[in-house]
Design a protein around this nucleic acid. Structure first.
Lengths: 199, 199
DNA sequence: GTCTATACTAGGATAGAC
DNA sequence: GTCTATCCTAGTATAGAC
């Protein structure tokens, strides 16, 4: 659950920055770059719209910061999975699980990254998104996976992102085919995405 | 190569409709729903902005029509691959190749569909996008593929869409890792996405 | 560090002529 | 069937007070 900010006390800039980035990650993930307004981000962060702009210069720069932070976090999750010696599962299973668990921790991370990827045309954002994508791929290669296996990982990741973004998860249980699809995609981790009954 | 319309003679509504849908498919695919302006679509179709709105009512409806048409075309390509008795390759290879070849025919199709998937939050567009996604999945199931295999197909499709949208294709040859990734993703069909040398 | 007020532009949609 | 003119809202960004 992401902490929803309410008031607007006078707090250190660095901390406010993080709050804004958290809010922006959620909103960009849901509405995309063009669909997001700085005002919406501001309200979710509990501050005024001009302050968001003041702090990041432009909406574009805000998005780029979100993208980079997002990518860093996924890499950190990969690294943690690689270094988890206590875990008896094979490396591939650990990294896969780490990615799926990010959905639970903060799905804005995966969604905003996905939004960045499909913005390749944009002269400022495109290069950042492409670099992020390749950093993820390269990290898999460095972890010892071959080209095909790494590509397979990325493919499954893109499917996960798309399923989350599309909102299909809420039809699990209603539609037999959707259930099949999610079971194949998430395996025993399906509980993370399946909506609770009292929705 | 998509035919770029220039003039604006008086032509039958049905034909104009198709021109607009073609243009809209391209533009939505590149810029996303929120990022696309009806004016841009109009200019690409060689007509005035109000006429686009006049013909489709709202930008939202235009996008929904694009989405549905797009989905129909992909299903048609799948069906053609299933029914291709002359082709000696196994069914899985034929369907995979059919999807990749759509990139060549009209990459706007894949991109605009992807843009729809990512818009699940939208109350009007979300349901259409989800239905489209499931139609594709179900068609694979009907063609005889199991849940896991069908899911694998969708995953590879989402990766292809993401790679196209991100614009990474233009770095093939420049970056060793990018080349690896594209070779793994597109196999011997890589020529379709690789940019020609005199770019 | 944070706000209010506001300037300015873009863009969807409508009216109505031809 | 298609255009021009235009309305109106939304949204980024700036100025400047507190």
């Amino acid at each position: 659950m992401s902490s929803v900010v309410t008031g607007s006390e006078r707090i250190p800039a660095a901390e406010r920055r993080e709050q804004i980035l958290d809010a922006a990650t959620r909103v960009f993930g849901e509405l995309g770059y063009a669909g997001t307004t700085t005002d919406r981000v501001a309200r979710e962060a509990g501050i005024s719209q001009p302050y968001v702009v003041r702090m990041f210069g432009t909406k574009e720069r805000l998005f780029i910061e979100v993208l980079e932070r997002t990518c860093d976090r996924i890499l950190a999750a990969f690294d943690a999975a690689v270094d988890a010696d206590g875990d008896p599962r094979p490396l591939a299973a650990r990294i896969g699980a780490a990615y799926v668990e990010l959905v639970d921790t903060d799905r804005g991370i995966l969604l905003s990254l996905m939004q960045g990827f499909i913005l390749g045309h944009d002269p400022a954002i495109g290069p950042v998104a492409r670099a992020g994508f390749m950093r993820l791929f390269e990290r898999l290669r460095e972890a010892g996976f071959g080209p095909d296996e790494s590509t397979g990982f990325m493919a499954r990741g893109m499917l996960i992102n798309t399923l989350l973004a599309s909102g299909l998860a809420s039809s699990i249980g209603e539609d037999r085919c959707v259930s099949e699809l999610f079971t194949s995609t998430f395996g025993d981790k399906i509980g993370i995405v399946a909506p609770s009954t009292q929705d």
